[in-house]
Design a protein around this nucleic acid. Structure first.
Length: 459
RNA sequence: GGCGCCGUGGCCGAGUGGUUAGGCAGCGGUCUGCAAAGCCGCGUACACCGGUUCAAAUCCGGUCGGUGCCUCCA
């Protein structure tokens, strides 16, 4: 399995630290509001990555956290707490907001999108003591300092800070866009923030830091470092996330973890690009943020959304429009209609190497467009075939890409209708024939008269 | 302003120094009671200007255009 490694800026071969077991960490959602399709884009790619790893014979131990505290609206440790903002918007507490959107996200990801559930889905608030210990360790080693609003990591203490993003540290100065809040260096970041005494916080904890009785909460970057270490160990094989996390979040995870462990944190850093909407960034201010429900309410299949996403490489920027989704839906319908031939025509006997071909694409830096091209070529061989695809081949597609193709057989009554219609056609009773076809259409079944006889598919 | 990324045929989207990507949409034909599908055929793309090379859409330089992060937002 080769993956493009942001650390080295080239495709690197995966060489797991522990033989055939792969450890993988993904930064999960901050559960403060309704997830949108951009969130799911990353989830879909990493889902296929896990599927490909399993097909390669690896066992995968995967952590995807749930951020429910500490994520501020600015990466620079300023701004509001996203959870509190969510609570304010809904007139409830941060705890309830976290609970609500954790459930929403869970339902959408694992029920609606049918993604594979990660092995561990820790919540940051369940790891507060561990995070405090982590900060204490950093303190002991002299990596931190305390100012007014929290305990900060001193990035000047390490010599390769910013190696992931290839940051030009010297070029960064306090000034126009980098506010001077008392930090020693512009890149320093909070590992523990103190609660503002003027504000009521739903989520805050006692800690050994600050004044006596002063409450606080963990820094966002710290959470991932701690949960990864607690659940996967000092070193992991693959760390995934969005490209937006390269300069700050992942850079800081590396700084913290490697300062503690003294070894390399993740071997492979894999980042997905984003998807735009109508050629521009999805943003609240533009009001162009779509959710999974928007897609289904327009009558599209979430599987079509997955196909749309997998049609482009995870590292290239994507675009979402309803037209593009419509094209993906058409392509999916074609795949599904071909899959439904298994109920109608004898199964193709000759062995195909479909699974191997798909897998060959996936292990080359998760080349899902290549895999889809392979599948299209395969599907197209059934255009005038007297056979249906092999069930094993369809299963391979479903297992490797996570796109469901095979539906249920139609009912006996519907089969009877198709048979009656065929009798009417033989008798040239076109009126009856068309009436039956109309009836089936109302039941969501389309019948086509082919050289192989009547063939149905779902509308 | 700082740091990036990208520019492929109607749309989406791979790829790469010399060989048809593919999908979606469209057009013509065929088949067909009709419809749809299938089948056959059709667009000869790679922003622009230079350079390197026997050969560049593919490498290098520049220009133009778009766009991302730094602020709501993955």
């Amino acid at each position: 399995m080769k993956l493009y490694n942001t650390l080295t800026r080239r495709k690197d071969e995966l060489k797991p630290l522990n033989d055939k077991q792969v450890t993988m960490y993904t930064c999960g959602l901050t559960v403060y509001s309704q997830p949108h399709i951009g969130n799911w884009v990353a989830y879909i790619y990493w889902d296929v990555l896990v599927r490909a790893l399993k097909a390669e014979g690896y066992t995968v131990n995967r952590v995807q956290n749930i951020t429910d505290v500490g994520h501020l609206t600015s990466d620079e440790d300023a701004g509001e707490d996203k959870m509190l903002r969510g609570a304010l918007a809904e007139g409830t507490t941060a705890w309830e907001v976290a609970d609500k959107y954790s459930k929403v996200a869970d339902d959408e990801a694992y029920n609606k999108l049918g993604l594979l559930r990660p092995d561990h889905m820790p919540r940051a608030t369940d790891y507060i003591p561990q995070q405090i210990v982590f900060v204490q360790e950093l303190e002991k080693k002299g990596y931190t300092y305390q100012i007014n609003d929290g305990v900060y990591f001193d990035t000047s203490k390490i010599n390769n800070y910013g190696k992931l993003a290839k940051l030009d540290i010297d070029g960064l100065q306090f000034g126009a866009r980098v506010e001077d809040t008392g930090k020693k260096n512009p890149t320093d970041f909070a590992v523990w923030k103190f609660s503002n005494p003027e504000e009521k916080r739903d989520m805050e904890w006692d800690s050994p830091f600050g004044d006596d009785g002063q409450k606080g909460f963990p820094g966002w970057h710290l959470e991932c470092s701690v949960m990864a270490r607690e659940l996967l160990g000092d070193q992991i094989d693959i760390h995934t996330g969005g490209i937006d996390h390269i300069p700050v979040h992942h850079t800081n995870e590396i700084a913290q973890t490697e300062s503690i462990t003294g070894t390399q944190f993740a071997q492979l850093w894999v980042h997905n690009n984003h998807i735009k909407v109508d050629g521009t960034k999805m943003s609240k201010s533009l009001g162009n943020i779509y959710t999974l429900s928007d897609i289904t309410e327009k009558g599209f299949d979430v599987q079509a959304f997955k196909l749309l996403i997998l049609s482009k490489h995870y590292r290239t920027e994507g675009n979402f429009t309803w037209d593009i989704l419509g094209a993906a839906q058409n392509a999916l319908n074609h795949w599904k209609a071909t899959a439904d031939l298994i109920w109608q025509l004898p199964e193709q006997r000759s062995a195909s190497n479909l699974a191997d071909s798909i897998q060959a694409s996936l292990i080359d830096d998760l080349d899902t467009p290549g895999a889809i091209t392979t599948i299209n070529a395969y599907i197209n061989t059934f255009g005038e075939s007297k056979h249906s695809p092999a069930k094993g081949d369809l299963k391979s597609i479903e297992q490797l890409l996570g796109i469901q193709l095979v539906g249920e057989d139609i009912s006996g009554a519907q089969k009877q209708l198709i048979s009656e219609r065929e009798q009417a056609r033989i008798a040239k009773d076109w009126q009856k024939s068309d009436e039956i076809r109309q009836l089936l259409t109302q039941q969501g079944i389309e019948v086509k008269d082919t050289s192989n006889g009547p063939i149905w598919s779902r509308l």
